[in-house]
């Protein structure tokens, strides 16, 4: 098994910046408390990020023009959303999602 020096450096430095992004807020906020307005602002992070990650999967980027649609993922999202409303159970939602996309890929 080979380990290229260039690849190793990429792994180490990428790891370092990622780690710093992850831990810096923990280190700083151990000492400081955020003002109310920032807490209010941050309360929208979960739905904003989850929506953004979902929508990203429904689109195919072509820089310079509007994205095209990932039809398979859009179709698979329909039963997934319905199963979320009915079951409210993450395990069921994930299984319905995976099976839906599997079936759609098989049919299309």
């Amino acid at each position: 098994m080979s380990l290229d020096k260039y690849v190793l450096l990429v792994i180490l430095f990428s790891g370092l910046v990622t780690w710093l992004s992850r831990i810096t807020p923990f280190v700083l906020l151990k000492k400081f408390t955020l003002p109310k307005i920032v807490v209010n602002f941050l309360s929208f992070v979960p739905i904003s990020i989850m929506t953004a990650l979902w929508v990203e999967s429904l689109l195919v980027q072509h820089l310079g023009s509007l994205p095209s649609l990932n039809v398979e993922n859009i179709l698979a999202s329909v039963p997934t959303v319905i199963s979320a409303v009915i079951s409210k159970n993450l395990m069921i939602i994930v299984i319905v999602g995976v099976v839906s996309l599997g079936v759609i890929k098989f049919v299309m």
Binding site: M50, I93, G97
Partner: peptide
């Protein structure tokens, strides 16, 4: 990707988004 497993994380975000709301 042909097995649809990649969609598991998307489905998870859909589920968690709905439950969050």
């Amino acid at each position: 990707e042909q097995f649809g497993l990649g969609f598991a994380l998307v489905a998870m975000f859909i589920g968690l988004l709905y439950l969050q709301i």
